[in-house]
């Protein structure tokens, strides 16, 4: 028994355990999602987070201890954000073709997302930290976390809420498109990418490649524009 405790103490201090837990949790979550028929309610990332939180609570490991190892996976978000420039470059011709509609839709969407979130949270009496952590909720995680850090929210809370937003968007989006009679795949894609970032993009690639391309474009644009606009907006509103 003592041996097992010693081994556990040794492993807890090494990054290998956190990395194995993270990848294992993600693969199990992917399998669960596939068994559930790819439902947006059981998104692999959400399921993986739930599994890992449950496991860490069970073995009484703190988030700080876990993150000490998991930071090596987390670090790759930086270069992955830079890598978003490649799909953005691939769709430059489309951007030129629909330049102004895309710009106007992009700014209106970002302002709607931010102002409605701030308004609802303040109306319902949420705390300042909640407001600031929720404001970048429609922005893709790596950028949203950076924005939350800059404006004074909790990056880790933002990351989780961004993921939940993505799953919600994947459920609501198709229903709204039917109600509004939006059939154009490029419009559907851009809308999903703006409101539901990577989750929306992944879902759009299952509709058509045009929808997926426009979703990826919207995700990249929303991220970049939000990074410039949201810190200024928060300052102007004096939150």
């Amino acid at each position: 028994m003592n041996d097992i405790v010693n081994i556990w103490v040794y492993l807890s201090a090494s990054p290998i355990l956190s990395i194995v837990i993270t990848i294992t949790g993600f693969l199990i979550a992917t399998r669960i999602n596939r068994l559930a028929g790819g439902s947006a309610f059981l998104h692999p990332v959400i399921v993986a987070i739930a599994l890992i939180v449950a496991f860490l609570t069970l073995v009484e490991t703190s988030y700080e201890q876990y993150f000490e190892g998991a930071q090596f996976i987390h670090f790759l978000l930086g270069p992955a954000t830079v890598a978003l420039a490649v799909p953005l470059f691939d769709h430059l011709d489309r951007v030129r073709l629909m330049f102004w509609p895309i710009i106007i839709a992009c700014f209106s969407g970002i302002l709607t997302a931010a102002l409605s979130t701030i308004g609802i949270v303040l109306l319902m009496g949420g705390s300042r930290e909640t407001v600031l952590s929720l404001t970048p909720k429609s922005v893709t995680s790596p950028i949203a976390m950076g924005i939350a850090e800059k404006i004074g929210g909790f990056p880790s809370l933002t990351a989780g809420l961004v993921l939940v937003t993505g799953a919600i968007g994947c459920v609501i989006g198709p229903v709204l498109f039917r109600l509004l009679r939006i059939r154009d795949h490029s419009v559907q894609g851009f809308t999903m990418g703006l409101a539901a970032h990577g989750f929306g993009t992944a879902q759009c690639f299952t509709i058509s490649s045009v929808a997926g391309a426009f979703a990826g474009l919207a995700m990249g644009m929303t991220g970049m524009v939000s990074a410039f606009v949201l810190p200024v907006l928060v300052k102007v509103l004096g939150i």
Partner: peptide
């Protein structure tokens, strides 16, 4: 998607 998990566990 995998890269979001460590930060998400921060919830």
């Amino acid at each position: 998607a995998l890269l979001f998990v460590p930060a998400g566990v921060g919830l």
